[in-house]
Write a protein that binds this DNA or RNA. Sequence first.
RNA 1: UCCGACGUCGUCUAAUGGCAGGACAGGGGACUUUGGAUCCUCUAAUCGUGGUUCGAAUCCACGCGUCGGAACCA
Length: 575
Amino acid sequence: MTSSKPTPEEASGRPAAAGESLDFIREIVKADLASGKNGQRVATRFPPEPNGYLHIGHAKSICLNFGIAREFGGTCNLRFDDTNPTKEDVEYVDSIKEDIRWLGFEWSKELYASDYFGQLYDWAEHLIRAGKAYVDESDPDQIREMRGTLTEPGKPSPYRDRPAEESLALFRKMRAGELPDGAMVLRARVDMTSPNLNLRDPIMYRIRRAHHHRTGDAWCIYPMYDWAHGQSDSIEQITHSICTLEFENHRPLYDWFLDNLPAPSHPQQIEFARLNLTYTVMSKRKLLRLVQDRLVSGWDDPRMPTISGLRRRGFTAQSLRAFADRIGVAKRESIVDVALLEHCVREDLNASAPRVMAVLRPLRVVIENYPEDQTEELELPFHPDHPEMGTRKIPFSRELFIERDDFKEDPPKKFFRLAPGREVRLRGGYFIKCTGVVKDPATGEITELRCSYDPATRSGAAPDGRKVKVTIHWVSARHAVEAEVRVYDRLFTDPDPSDRDGKEFTSFLNPASLETLRACKLEPAASSAAPESRWQFERLGYFCADRRDSRPGALVFNRTVSLKDEWARISGADN
RNA sequence: UCCGACGUCGUCUAAUGGCAGGACAGGGGACUUUGGAUCCUCUAAUCGUGGUUCGAAUCCACGCGUCGGAACCA
């Protein structure tokens, strides 16, 4: 992050509390800064492999790496870890860049591990000459065999002690394309008996004739992660190389390479626990599976935990950053309750989203004592706490729509909404009383309510001081704007949808994770909703005009999250 | 089984040998022209056993549990 930003607190979205404690990584950075370890310099990097879309777990890492750079006046590079051309693609590079920017971060430099293929090759020769790397002609099965097991040490390859000159000549042949794919590999000569299997002569290069999205066909040998990552960090003079826990076992190798090379710097690798969230999956493999098997509509399906999916669902970048701040950073593996994420987006949208009324499941109401062709305009603020957001005009007429859920012919205890003979307030309008119920004689389904209104209660107050229990939302039938609303729920029914008990994670998919409602009625003020604009539909939740499918005249909204619902809680309903 | 890491309210996270605190979730209440928001309030935790210490979540020992590690993946 090179652009100047005000205060660390404001930049990170975290409250500026005095004496606030730092996470263990920031604690290390702070101490290193104080001791002058890296010459007062802080440099981090975010190193995605371009083989999938970023998800909210990556958002945690992005907020950490870019956040530290921002807070401590350092830099953060975006470096694509593109060492495996068979799995990587520019589509992913582009989506990753878009997602990071959308999240509110800008990298100091955009780099690629493939930028360093030349330097990496030279260093490999250096290691060979020093007797610390050798070309192994064993096949994959033999290598696996000789690696030993978790409890038994490995055995040296017959090629382990061959002269450096021989390895050098062979390595040059590998690089020159004179050998077929998989014929041999370059291995680091570390320790075949180490209890850490990563140190049992790890493979540095494999021969693979694959077209690389950046280097094209310039190379037919590609470096492995361990050989590329630390060296890339060193070249970029990264000070703190932050990664997730599964790389902890790789740290000794990370250090070994740098200790045995004339590398420009030796960054410190620090590991933290990756994010897990309830009711979703986070591994790229599983997300890819959902996409490929069309279990979702794509990487940006609003039910996906991808950054693009969350964005499309209506989550704000601010709410994701706030979430990252609240979950903290530690080494303990954990599963964060998705309710915390939902809380963060409600918190943000409650403050910023304009209010409007929408009826998702319309029930027609005829106000019998309201004149046939009369229309009046009522006025309501866009936000009850922010008058500066202005007001909107709401037409009122004899025929209205209300939410089906807001009426019960036989109301249970604590159901305060409309029922025969009962009076409620129409939001911003009049008190109405239900005087009759019209049903389809064939099915018994309620098709219409007959009501009367009290003209003295215009704008919602009764001159005689009488109270109503609740206020319900409504839309004038004649003036209603039609829209499609996609009501999303959790993608999985189980808080931990992992493969277990012989069942695949897909068996926990929630069949009701998407409900598409096509005849929803919106008040006219919502007709101008721009793609990706976010609204509160009063009493229902926060909704976002779909950035791909919504157009003026053919509006499509995604439900980001419902409002907290006391009645749902009491009645035990899901939403 | 070997190596490594990690065990604090239901969940996430603080404590840096000195009052176990915060957030989310949950309960109760106030207020309310959104059963929203807001405000008040309550419930709720140091894996176990020893040891060191005036004092241990923290240090030590031994257990127990969880996770990761045997791709020419990252």
